[in-house]
């Protein structure tokens, strides 16, 4: 049984597709940002790629955090000063927002920067 020219081409082509698929697979999800919400008791994490509303409870009341178009922000909070709402949108590595009266802390990061931040903190 001998391989003919297009057998060889088919093999090389398949190997190529296999490698491309694998490399493409590695690159997917790499740079997806996320937001971490810290409350008094819990730590929550959400990808910034999906829009959603998150309600968390704190000592003062409820804080509503909105993820929208790859950014996160306090939409409302049951605190007196609303400073957190005025802090606006965050999305990049190391950015943060907080509602101190309600003890809710918000920070964003990307997968790549994650390790650097960790390394710096610990």
């Amino acid at each position: 049984m001998k391989l003919r020219i297009f057998d060889v081409i088919a093999l090389i082509f398949s190997l190529g597709v296999f490698l491309l698929f694998t490399i493409y697979g590695r690159s997917v999800n790499q740079d997806e940002g996320y937001v971490i919400i810290e409350t008094e008791d819990d730590q929550l994490i959400y990808p910034l790629s999906e829009d959603r509303d998150i309600r968390v409870e704190g000592p003062v009341g409820e804080s509503l955090i909105r993820i929208d178009h790859g950014t996160a922000r306090f939409e409302s909070s049951d605190c007196d000063d609303d400073l957190c709402v005025h802090m606006g949108e965050i999305h990049g590595a190391g950015e943060w927002a907080a509602c101190l009266p309600n003890r809710v802390f918000l920070y964003t990061g990307g997968n790549e920067d994650d390790r650097e931040v960790d390394a710096g903190v610990y």
Partner: peptide, 20 residues
Amino acid sequence: ILTPVGKILAEIGPFRITSG
């Protein structure tokens, strides 16, 4: 689990186990 969503229940190595 590779894409964490929701409350972080545990962290095992690089994985964050989340409720969502």
